[in-house]
Amino acid sequence: MYTQGLDPSGASADPKSGAETSADLERFQSRIDAEQKVEPKDWMPEAYRKTLVRQISQHAHSEIIGMQPEGNWLTRAPTLKRKAILLAKVQDEAGHGLYLYGAGETLGTSREQMVDGLLSGKAKYSSIFNYPTLTWADVGAIGWLVDGAAIMNQIPICRCSYGPYARAMVRICKEESFHQRQGFEIMLELSRGSKEQKDMAQDALDRWWWPSVMMFGPSDSESKHSAQSMAWKIKRFSNDELRQKFIDVTAPQAEFLGLRIPDDKLQYDAESGHYRFGEIDWREFYDVLAGNGPCNRQRLRHRQKAHDEGAWVRAGAKAYAAKHEGHSRTSRPRAAAGCQHG
């Protein structure tokens, strides 16, 4: 979901390029249909590989950039417990980015290439992170809504056809559940607090609701490549299905909090068992995607700065390793050595 709808034009290799025959493609498809996993050195269509590299790296970038809006309130967290929880959450996000870059690296790209893609602006990341976190309540709203939406998408990807990506997602999902809970708990505490705190919570919901709903991306009818991704079991549910599920699950939670979702058309329809909701203004989504959101420039600049300022550090470490090349082999710490005793 951090990648839904990010490249509506998509990239797909001409299936006749290279030497991919339709027999190869059919054989590959039957493996997929039989729910067999594809592993790094297995034969795969070039378009499958490309789609995965793009989706996985965009997912990784989203985790890394996502650390910024949340990290924004680390130094101002209102209690030591909240500070610690938020630190752990942001640390998890770095870890998730790392697992995903690792999965991407099994497909013929490198961490460096993927990061270059992000910093050059060529690679996308989930546009939700281009919004500012203006109050402490935003931290709660992000946990509750944004992580809530992410979980909805991530669980199906645990069963995606590409092994390393699926395994990374399993790790991520295990860690993700606490993220949403901590967000909801923050909102709960605020909604039971002073008038100012309630207003703070409502204001955060007012600003984060629609961007969260837009996270699922435009309707699949807009995307030519949704069908192929579904066939290859990279994508398992449609954008609209996931969005509906999210709204159905979240609306009652908002009611419980005593907060009002900023959608006049939102209404439970007993017949279908789903919530009806208002029309999404996709202009905002495409605008932010194109780089015209409140924080796009800031997020990338921040990331670029960290990268640039770290160059001398990375170079220093590498120079040391080169100087002591033989050394590190012989002075390997005991903890790592020995197959029998490890």
Partner: peptide, 28 residues
């Protein structure tokens, strides 16, 4: 999974930080 590191000891440290945050390991 994998990590990047400038040397063996750093790789161990990074692996520990990344993959055993929730007590998931006795040996790396």
């Amino acid at each position: 999974g994998s990590v990047h590191a400038a040397g063996d000891q750093m790789a161990l440290d990074h692996a520990r930080d990344v993959y055993t945050r929730r007590n998931e390991g006795v040996s790396i």
